[in-house]
Design a protein around this nucleic acid. Structure first.
Lengths: 343, 343
DNA sequence: TTGTATGCGTTATCAG
DNA sequence: CTGATAACGCATACAA
C-alpha cells in the first residue's frame, strides 16, 4: 500500500466542512444541492491536498469494484492475446474500470486458483478467453459472477460468447481468389477437427461451388498448421500435373511452408501461384516476400464486444438478465502481394 | 459484484462462535490458541457455506491489497509482452497477489489516467515496462509507490530496473560465428541510437577483436529493423567482392530480409552464408527456412526478477529500503540451422 | 480459550 | 444546504 494517503477526512478538515459534504461535491450526487462557494472550497482543498479516493473503501461500500478479470489459457505464446487484452482494456477504461489478467497455461488447477483469487477480490465480472476458437466447458465457480466468453463458445445456457466468423472468412478467401480469376483452387486445412477448420472449409467450398467450380477444381487437403506442414502439403499439391493456381492456407504459419515449396519448385508468387493466408500475424504475413494477403482474426473486436456485453450484464444484474447474446465477428481481408491473376 | 456472498458473520453464526474466532482460525493467527474442536467446527462451517473472504475488506483493514499494476507502453503489437506479463504473474500468484495490466500506447495522457486508476485501487506496487530496451523518465506519480522498471532504465535514484545484457548478446552472437570458423563477419545494426544497438555492437566487436579479426574483416552497417531494411543492407553487403561469410542481424525480422537477399543471390544458408538473429521471435525464427539461430531476449526472466524485487521492496517498505538493485540479464542463444562453417 | 468493540475510508440515510 | 452516524466485511487490541 502506498504511504499514508490523504483521506476524505483530511479534505473535510482542510475545507472546514463535514466529510458528507466532501463526498457530495466530489461525487456530484444528483439530488444534493450544495452551495457553489463551499463546493469550490472543497474542490480546492481536494486538489491542494492531492486527494485520491480510496477505491477499496468505495468498492466495499458500493458493492462494486469496477474491476474485471480476464482469464486466458495462454497469454505468452500467441500474439493474439495482446490485442484481445487491449480491446478489453479499452472499453474497461472507458467505464473507469481496469482488468486483472491471468493466464492458466491450460492447467485446470491453476485456473481454479486464479479464478478464486479474482472472485475473492470481488471482480464485477469475468472474461473467459481462449487463444484459439473452440468450445469450452465453463468452470463451475463462474456461475456466480457475470461471465462472457471470448473466442470460445459453450453450452452453458445464458452466457454470452463471441467467436470469429469462420465461414465468412472462408468465403472471403475464396472471393479474393475467384475475383482474381482463379479456377483451380486448393485449400490446405488444419488436420484438427476444430470449428475454424469446419467453418473455413464450408465458406470456401460454398463460394467455389457458387462460382461454378467443378468438384475436382477444388482440392482440400489437411496438414499440421506449421511451416513444415504447409511445406509438405504444398509439395504434394504443386508437383501434381494439374496443380492449382491458387492456394488458401489455414493460417499464415502454414503459408510460410507453402512459400518455401513454391520457391523450391521454381514457382513465382504471385505470378505462378497465388496464396491467401489466415490470421494476419503481422511479423510473418508482412515479413515474408511477397507480402501475404490474408484474413485477419478479429481479436481486438472480440475483446471489445465481449467487454461491452460484460458491463451490460453487470449493470443489468439487478434486473433479470435476458437471454445471452452471441456473435460471430468477421475479420477484414488484408490485401498484400501474394494474389494475382493466373498466368 | 457477485451476488450476495457469505460473510464471516454468517460463518460465525453457523459455527456458533464469534467472528473473532472465525477470523483467528481462518487466518491461523500465530499467537492465538483456539480449541481444536471449535477450530474444526469453524472450518466445517466455512466450507459448508462456501465462504470466500472479501479481499476488499481485508485490504482496507490491513492496508495491503496484494495487488500490483503492470503498465506497459504497448501490449498488443509485440509478442514480448505476453512473456513479460507471464513472468510477473507467476511470481505474483506465488505470493497470493494478482496483477492489473494496462497498456498506454505511448500516450502520456492515457498513461497518467491508468496510473491514477491503479493508485486509486491501492496497488501495492507498480511494474513499469517498456517493450524495447530504452531509458525512460518515470511518471512523477510513481514516486509515492514502490516501482520497478522492466526493459528500461532510468535516472531516478532508488528505483530498481532490469534490462537485457546487450553486450553479452553481442558477444554470444560473435562466439557462435567465430566458433564455426568464420573470419569475415558483418553486423547489420539498428539505425536508431538505442542501448540495444550500442551494446550489441560493443559485444560483437569486442569478441571479434579478441579473436584477432582485422578491422576490415568486420563490417558494421545499419538498417531499418524490418525485412526491407535487412534486405537492402544484405544486398549491399553480399554483392561486394569480398562478401562476409556470416552476418549477425540486429533482430529476427531484419534477418528475414537477409534470407531473401541471400536466396536471390543464389547463396545457400548456411552453406554459403551463416546468419545469427536476435529476439527469437518464435514464429519467424522457427518458421523461416532454415531455422534461424538467434539470441533470445529474457522477457520472462525480466518479469520474474522485477516482480520479486517489487515484492521485496513492498515488504521492506516499513523499514528503510536500501539502494536500488539493477540487473542485466543474459538471454540464451537458440541454436537452429542457420550457422555452419564457411565453405 | 473466546468475545466485544473499534476502525480501515467511503457512501448513504436521515436529521437539522 | 449541511452534518452526524450507520453500514460495507474484516482484523485486532483488549477484556472476560
Amino acid at each position: 500500500m502506498p504511504q499514508r494517503r490523504v483521506t476524505i477526512k483530511q479534505v473535510a478538515a482542510e475545507a472546514g466542512v463535514s466529510i458528507t459534504t466532501v463526498s457530495h461535491v466530489l461525487n456530484d450526487v444528483p439530488g444534493k444541492r450544495v452551495h457553489p462557494d463551499t463546493r469550490k472550497r472543497v474542490k480546492m482543498a481536494a486538489t491542494r491536498l492531492g486527494y485520491v479516493p480510496n477505491g477499496l473503501a468505495q468498492s466495499l461500500r458500493t458493492q462494486r469494484s469496477n474491476t474485471i478479470g480476464l482469464v486466458g489459457d495462454e497469454i505468452a505464446t500467441t500474439p493474439f492475446a495482446g490485442k484481445l487484452i487491449l480491446g478489453a482494456q479499452d472499453v474497461a477504461l472507458s467505464r473507469d474500470a481496469i482488468v486483472f489478467v491471468v493466464s492458466t497455461g491450460y492447467q485446470r488447477d491453476v485456473e481454479n486458483r486464479e479464478i478464486e483469487e479474482l472472485l475473492r477480490r470481488q471482480v464485477d465480472g469475468i472474461l473467459y478467453a481462449s487463444m484459439y476458437h473452440r468450445t469450452v466447458e465453463l468452470p463451475p465457480q463462474l456461475a456466480s459472477v457475470p461471465t462472457v466468453l471470448i473466442n470460445a463458445s459453450c453450452t452453458t445456457p445464458n452466457v454470452p460468447w463471441v467467436v470469429p466468423d469462420e465461414v465468412a472468412g472462408g468465403e472471403d478467401a475464396a472471393d479474393v481468389l475467384l475475383a482474381a480469376g482463379h479456377r483451380r483452387l486448393a485449400f490446405i486445412n488444419d488436420v484438427d477437427e476444430i470449428p475454424a477448420a469446419f467453418g473455413r472449409e464450408e465458406g470456401f467450398r460454398r463460394r467455389a461451388a457458387k462460382a461454378g467450380l467443378r468438384a475436382d477444381d477444388l482440392q482440400v487437403v489437411t496438414a499440421e498448421t506449421d511451416p513444415a506442414g504447409g511445406y509438405a502439403a504444398a509439395r504434394r499439391l504443386l508437383e501434381d500435373t494439374t496443380r492449382p493456381t491458387a492456394i488458401f492456407c489455414f493460417n499464415d504459419r502454414l503459408a510460410m511452408g507453402v512459400y518455401r515449396a513454391a520457391t523450391e519448385l521454381g514457382l513465382r508468387i504471385p505470378e505462378d501461384l497465388s496464396i491467401v493466408g489466415f490470421d494476419n500475424q503481422e511479423f510473418v504475413a508482412d515479413g515474408i516476400f511477397p507480402g501475404l494477403t490474408t484474413i485477419e482474426l478479429p481479436h481486438y473486436d472480440m475483446g471489445v464486444w465481449a467487454t461491452e456485453q460484460l458491463f451490460d450484464r453487470i449493470d443489468a444484474a439487478s434486473q433479470g438478465t435476458g437471454p445471452a447474446p452471441t456473435a460471430r465477428l468477421r475479420g477484414p481481408v488484408i490485401h498484400r502481394d501474394s494474389v494475382a491473376p493466373p498466368s
